[in-house]
Each structure stands twice: as C-alpha cells, then as structure tokens.
Amino acid sequence: QAPETKIVDKSRVACDGGEGALGHPRVWLQIPEDTGWVECPYCDCKYVLKGSKADAL
C-alpha cells in the first residue's frame, strides 16, 4: 500500500507510525523551507507543509 500523505500546519512534526504499539519509535521531523515536505525514515509517511510550494502540487 502507498505511504500516507499528511498536510500539516507546522514545519516540525512528530511521527510514531500512528498505530500505537504497532507503530515505530517517535521521531521529530523538520520540514525544509526549500522543499516544503519531509518523509518519515521509518514508515515513509510524507508530511507536506500547508501553503508551501509542495502543497500546491
């Protein structure tokens, strides 16, 4: 199944896999201003900063 994409309001987000005990260790991710998105290294969930150029795609 394809990784999930989430639109977020802040450039710093936490990801834990979203499945409680079945998820992964919580990691904090920083969305770079130049790209407007970041992917979780564990679950490949893509976080897109709302209003960024990546959000316009």
Rank of each mutant, 00 (worst) to 15 (best):
V13Q: 01
L57Y: 11
D34V: 05
K50D: 09
D16P: 03
Q1M: 15
K53R: 09
T5D: 08
V27R: 00
D55T: 01
E33C: 11
Q30G: 01
Q30A: 07
P3N: 11
V27L: 05
E19K: 12
D44E: 13
Q30I: 13
V27W: 02
D9Y: 14
T5H: 10
A56N: 14
C15W: 00
K50C: 11
D16E: 12
Y42M: 14
S52I: 04
E19I: 12
Y47C: 10
H24D: 03
K53T: 10
E4I: 14
D34K: 09
E4A: 14
D16K: 07
E19P: 14
G18K: 09
P41V: 04
Y42D: 06
K53D: 09
Q30N: 10
Y47K: 03
P41H: 04
G17K: 02
C15K: 00
L49Q: 04
A21Q: 11
W28D: 01
V38E: 02
Q1K: 13
I7Y: 13
A21D: 12
H24P: 03
R26V: 12
G18T: 08
R12G: 10
C45V: 15
T35G: 04
W37R: 03
D44R: 15
T5K: 07
K46S: 03
G51K: 00
C15F: 00
H24C: 02
C40L: 08
W37K: 04
V48E: 05
G23W: 14
K10F: 12
E33Q: 10
I7F: 11
I7G: 01
D34T: 03
W28L: 02
W28I: 04
E33D: 07
K53P: 12
G20V: 04
D44W: 14
R12C: 14
D44T: 15
K50G: 07
G36M: 02
D44C: 14
G20I: 03
K46R: 14
Q30F: 13
Q1E: 11
V13T: 01
A14R: 04
P3Q: 14
W28K: 01
P32F: 03
P32Q: 06
S11W: 07
W28F: 06
V27E: 02
A54Q: 05
R26L: 12
V8H: 04
G20S: 06
I31K: 01
I31V: 02
G23F: 08
L29W: 01
H24V: 04
K6D: 06
R12L: 15
E33L: 13
V48L: 04
A14T: 07
E4C: 15
D16T: 13
K6N: 12
D16Q: 09
C45A: 15
E39K: 15
P25M: 09
E33S: 07
V48R: 00
K53W: 08
K53N: 08
D34Q: 09
L22R: 11
D44H: 15
E19N: 10
S52C: 08
V13A: 00
E39F: 15
G17T: 01
V13W: 04
P3T: 12
W28E: 03
V8S: 05
C43L: 01
D44M: 15
Q1W: 14
Q30D: 14
S52F: 06
G23C: 01
R26G: 03
A56Y: 13
D9Q: 05
P32D: 12
G20C: 06
W37L: 06
K50S: 09
T5N: 06
D55L: 00
L29H: 03
G51L: 03
R12I: 14
P25W: 08
G20K: 04
G18R: 09
D44K: 15
C40P: 06
P3E: 11
P41S: 05
Q30V: 12
A56P: 14
E33N: 05
S11Q: 10
T35P: 10
C43Q: 00
Q1Y: 12
K50N: 08
H24A: 05
A56L: 14
V27Y: 03
A56E: 13
G17V: 03
V48S: 00
L57C: 09
K53Q: 10
G36W: 03
G17Q: 02
L29A: 02
G51E: 06
D34P: 03
L29E: 02
G23Q: 13
W28M: 07
L57D: 10
I7P: 06
T35N: 04
E33K: 09
V13H: 02
K6Y: 13
S52G: 13
G36R: 02
Y42H: 09
K6T: 12
R26P: 10
E4G: 15
K6W: 10
K50H: 11
D9P: 01
D34N: 09
A21P: 12
E39W: 14
A54D: 06
A21V: 11
Q30T: 13
A54F: 07
K10W: 08
Q1L: 13
V48I: 13
D16M: 06
L57F: 14
V27A: 01
P32R: 04
R26M: 10
L22V: 08
K6C: 12
